[in-house]
Design a binder for these strands. Structure first.
Lengths: 212, 212, 212, 212
DNA sequence: GATGAATGAGTATTCATTCAT
DNA sequence: CATGAATGAATACTCATTCAT
């Protein structure tokens, strides 16, 4: 690596840092005031740079929001993708896996409450484009969980249900609990593990296959 | 009733009709474009009246939104309030009751998909006031369901759970399924009864008390 | 007078009464809020008639203001016109005359404080037309008083002065004292006669011809 | 002073210049059309900037008016404050002082006829706030002149009068003459000195103490 | 005459974005 | 790279006036 490369790289690093600062301020302001009430002037003021500087790092207010939204989705998807399923040959194994992934998800969202808030509160109202992106996210998630349920049923691990309805029920119970826990603090006197276990329990008991 | 009264009453009737027309247009435009992108000019254009006429019937754009929101909440609350619980002495009775109220709710929301969409998509982003109103709605609902769960547990109808978590899980599964069913039409190839029965089933099986 | 005439006349009377009611309300509202902040809706509300009724009696808001303004000017001009000057052959006679007309003016304005307030506060800002009307009023008054001063000087009753400046000084001292006395109540602990005598005294002593 | 400071200061200078340009245009438009008929669009058009630019320098139309009004009052008060009274031990000294301050006032107002016009014509009709500010100005002035008269009487320089009435008479004669002279040009064929001397003469002769 | 619902022209203000320095 | 002054499009709301009933 030449001195030049190093310098360039240092410059790039600074550029990245500055971008991150602005994005962090964006997260903060969007969470505090909502997308529509948030002003670019508030964001730059929080960072301590001039109005024009914002546009050196982001194309505009909406693109910034888009990145923040993508960061959130990437975090969620990444967490689920990190999940290395066990053999899933018994309901006990399933319980373990679900609890584990649930706790991982709880962790990452608890660490990013503002992202979580922005996602649930604002994402649908910014633009048609984002609305459709979110819709696609939900439908993908719904389809994945439907397939997952179908597999579990095939393996005799869960009872016969309408797997699509079951998928969306699952999504719903998880997302509402997350909102109350992470964003509104309504359930935050309860240990995360207990919350997750209640979720897993309802799912598992609610789908217990009939005893032979 | 004198002729004068009649005239007055006819006038009042026309006034109500006009109000309703404008409100209906508001529902339509808000659902189509979202609160922030909706323009008063679009609403009056849809009704076919002048801009000023709008302000004869509503104080402004936000107050109109507020009424629409209240109408929705009143519909939901009214539906639940209409529920005359049976004795609730057996799980079978419970299943019947839950199915019945679930179907009633499904009915009223299916008939008002735009209100439903507005509630889930926009209500939180219009103003602090509405955000707090919605929050209160959720917390009241959460508290009611928590108590309900506690009663059911006392009667031996459901197993020991964290009743608050259970309450919010229930809210979540219902609201997500409603959104998919009513607003996005993702589940609308499935009969309403089946959807509701799946919801009730998950709740009931998921909370089945241990056999003696 | 036939019965028909009488009926007509009664109808005309009613019409006049209604007009006067509206005008009185106009005076009140204009004085309270000023011309620009005054709303026709406030005026009709005070009278207890419908919005449209206003336009059966007056051409509009500005014409109503015009009438009110003219009423005020007519009162002032009428008061001065009522003055039957004495011979004005001595300064004592002059003092008597000025005191008399001053008291008459004070009387009529004190009885119509809202008109007075409207004239001094609003008249110039309503329209070009009224501004010019007021200007003409002042210039006519100035010219009259200038001539009057010239006559008094010719008769040896007052000293040599710039008669036009003297005229406007006189107008100014009178109108400012009137405003404080009638509109703002700043001097209203002082008997009207004393106020007028102070005015006359300043004018007379301030223009006393040099002793021979 | 570093280059940076200089740059900053130059920027600040430009900012002030721009502000002054806009304010000057405001004075012009307000004087020409009156506050209520004046449009922000006219003001920015006169300066040759965009509509939004106006709001970089002033909070709005009314705040701009407020500054203009304050500038006027500051000029008047400043002129009077600049007056360094002589010993005021003889009526001749008093005459000199009054003439001097009168000329100074005439000067400053003649140089700012639009401000003068705005003050006398519009200031009372813009808002309650300004109305009260003006009222306070008059009452302060009235109180000051009353005290001044009391002092002069104590020193035997003027006769016994109602000092408050005398104060307001003085204010009135001065302000009316100023309006005619500065705003309407009615007296502007007369040298300023002569106008002022007539004012002083009426005051002094009108309050001459009785010869012993 | 009286009503009051309907009209629609008119305007101050905001704020994301640009660009000369 | 950074600045921040300038831009100007975009919109909710008011209220004097009209006119069908």
């Amino acid at each position: 690596m030449t001195a030049n490369d190093e310098k360039l790289s240092r410059r790039e690093q600074r550029r990245e840092d500055r971008r991150d600062e602005i994005k962090a301020a964006g997260v903060h302001i969007f969470a505090k005031h909502g997308y529509h009430a948030a002003k670019v002037s508030q964001i730059v003021k929080e960072v301590g740079v001039a109005q024009g500087t914002f546009y050196l790092y982001f194309e505009g207010k909406e693109p910034l929001f888009g990145e923040i939204l993508n960061d959130f989705l990437a975090m969620v998807v990444g967490t689920i993708a990190d999940w290395e399923p066990s053999d899933l040959d018994t309901r006990e194994a399933l319980r373990g896996d679900l609890t584990r992934v649930g706790l991982m998800l709880t962790d990452v969202l608890t660490e990013n409450p503002e992202h979580t808030q922005i996602f649930f509160r604002e994402a649908l109202t910014v633009s048609k484009e984002f609305k459709e992106m979110i819709r696609e996210f939900y439908e993908t998630l719904g389809a994945m969980l439907s397939s997952f349920n179908a597999i579990l049923f095939d393996r005799g691990l869960i009872a016969r249900r309408n797997n699509r309805v079951l998928a969306y029920m699952t999504i719903g119970m998880v997302e509402r609990v997350i909102q109350e826990y992470v964003v509104h603090g309504v359930l935050d006197d309860i240990p995360a593990r207990e919350v997750v276990e209640n979720l897993v329990l309802l799912y598992l008991e609610g789908t217990a296959p009939p005893a032979e």
